[in-house]
Design a protein around this nucleic acid. Structure first.
Ligand code: FES
Ligand code: FES
Lengths: 131, 131
DNA sequence: TTAATAAAAGACAAAAATATCCTTTTATAT
DNA sequence: ATATAAAAGGATATTTTTGTCTTTTATTAA
């Protein structure tokens, strides 16, 4: 998503192969995740020759939080640090209060960080997509 | 570890069965983790009738950070949020700076939270070991 | 000394996450 | 129209994590 967000406005779409290379991720595995993102309308895909993927109108504006939610679910934002079946104020685990602060810190960061924010750093060469 | 830390000073040791029930974790699986903690000297074990586990002298003082490090390794404290092979200032990912703050928040919390802190809450009935 | 008890260790099994392969569908260009 | 390119979908495979089972070793108590 970050890579696709770095593409200039109105750019042609980018093929799976090129994406996989750019982010150093296995092609077939990357394809599965891209499919998920298309199903959830964060990406659009074009089949056939010169086909590929590009970020959708709605995808452009989404937060990192939304991308994570679509790909991995929201357990990272709601789960108990110590693995209790449910994180709850009523029946907190031994680190609930301390952990909640950190989890909220993470959630807040991810909700306020947009793909555009991240793409900007990549475009400017101050951050990277692969090691 | 938290459960064993709630045991009164100079208490007899606690059997695997009792531990597994107390924390609602499968017995055999719990046993494997206890073995790891014994190998790393955070726990002591006593074999034979009336045997079991108890927290060691060194174990009493350890932080949550140390327990996690022993059981799961330190990737949670050092790994890249976006899965780059290495988290680095020289070649940061798109959320490195924002994520580092959160990771440091987590690391700090875990380094300063001791088993005794967590055990106190359990003993006082304000926090719980299972749902 | 022996029987019973409990942890240690190692082999094995199941489930989940990660990853690949193959066939089908759709679009493009000739 | 047809050959080709590219994503979609489904089946399969691998790896890691989680979990079990069985045998061995150590300890205690009768
Ligand atoms: S109950 Fe464990 S983090 Fe909330
Ligand atoms: S490089 Fe990604 S968190 Fe540091």
């Amino acid at each position: 998503m970050i890579f696709l967000a770095t593409m200039p406005e109105g750019e042609e779409c980018i093929g799976l192969k090129e994406i996989a290379v750019a982010i150093n991720s296995p092609e077939a595995f990357t394809a599965k995740i891209l499919q998920t993102l298309v199903r959830e309308h964060l990406l659009e895909s074009i089949k056939g020759p010169n086909g590929g993927f590009r970020i959708s109108e709605s995808g452009k504006k989404v937060s990192l939080h939304r991308v994570v939610e679509v790909v991995d679910g929201d357990s990272i934002f709601t789960g108990c640090a110590l693995g209790l079946q449910e994180c709850s104020e009523k029946r907190p685990c031994a680190v609930h209060h301390k952990f909640k602060a950190i989890r909220d810190h993470l959630t807040g960061m991810m909700m306020t960080t947009t793909l555009e924010d991240m793409a900007k750093g990549i475009r400017q060469g101050v951050s990277y997509l692969k090691y």
